[in-house]
């Protein structure tokens, strides 16, 4: 029983990471209207900038992470303006396939610069804490804490600030938002910064809790897609629920099924969910 609870707890950590990784993806999906396959590569970009500054240049972890997140946000904005903006009118399928091209370019660049092999950050080893017989490391707690913090601040941002409201208006109905005087281009830029910055944050988390290799991003996109489909198109709150469901389902499944099937569980959940409810958890339809 304790073992099962332990798996569930690990699942919560995985879920929190997935939430961080998926929120930016969902935001892009809602405001820009397409699935950004290259989003996962942005996690890799941020993770490797952190690694380069921390393990390579010998910086402490926190400034490295901050620089990595800001840099990733700017790179995301740059890619958004140069690649995606001009082709948005060609429809979501074209942009989706273009983002595969972007993913290829980023992955190729990372491969060329960093090379293969496994990397770790230059940080103290994780300390394990025990609560009621359940183990959790300090880095895992950071992931959970940051996911909660991000969720709350994002909710405040989207509900209280002008830019946040503009982003929500854009995601609900772009034409109406534009006709009501919302600066579409500026809002789109803010979204790119925000979603890439979130990818950057998730990338730093990834560097903290996992060993890094250049093909890491590809494994993340599968899970991000799973969470995003499960959450559907509606609110960002459904991403939180979906992230936790997928995370817990994947880790708890290890209790009964061989661990090799862990990624498969994510998709089984999604396929079942799609068949039962094709519009995702949030039940909202896009017009």
């Amino acid at each position: 029983m304790t073992l099962l609870a332990q798996y569930a707890l690990t699942g919560v950590v995985t879920g929190c990471f997935l939430i961080l990784a998926t929120i930016g993806f969902s935001l892009t999906r809602q405001v820009e209207g397409f699935l950004n396959i290259a989003h996962a590569e942005m996690l890799g970009v941020s993770a490797f900038i952190t690694w380069g500054l921390n393990a390579g240049a010998g910086w402490p972890i926190i400034p490295s992470a901050v620089v990595a997140i800001v840099a990733t946000a700017l790179i995301g904005l740059f890619i958004g303006r140069v690649v995606y903006d001009p082709i948005r009118k060609l429809g979501p399928a074209v942009v989706l396939i273009s983002s595969v091209g972007v993913a290829y370019v980023i992955a190729g660049l990372m491969h060329a610069i960093i090379g293969t092999g496994i990397r770790t950050l230059d940080i103290p080893l994780a300390t394990t804490y025990k609560f009621f017989g359940l183990r959790i490391t300090n880095y895992q707690m950071i992931v959970v804490g940051l996911a909660a913090l991000t969720g709350i601040s994002l909710a405040l941002f989207l509900n209280r600030t002008k830019t946040g409201l503009a982003i929500r208006a854009m995601s609900a109905n772009p034409e109406l938002a534009a006709s009501r005087g919302i600066d579409v281009r500026q809002t789109s830029r803010a979204t790119w910064l925000l979603s890439s910055g979130l990818a950057g944050l998730a990338g730093v988390m990834l560097a903290l809790i996992a060993t890094l290799s250049t093909d890491i991003a590809f494994h993340q996109i599968l899970q991000i897609l799973a969470v995003a489909i499960l959450a559907g198109l509606g609110s960002l709150y459904s991403v939180i629920v979906a992230g936790l469901i997928v995370g817990i389902a994947m880790d708890v499944s290890v209790f009964w099924i061989p661990a090799g099937y862990r990624p498969l569980i994510a998709f089984s959940v999604v396929i079942i969910a799609l068949l039962v409810r094709p519009e995702g958890l949030s039940m909202k339809r896009r017009s």
Binding site: V83, G101, G108, H111
Partner: peptide, 15 residues
């Protein structure tokens, strides 16, 4: 890696 990069760029440019 160059193969990946060129493939990706071709992709973006053609689309």
């Amino acid at each position: 890696s160059a193969e990946d990069i060129v493939t990706g760029i071709l992709f973006i440019v053609i689309l």
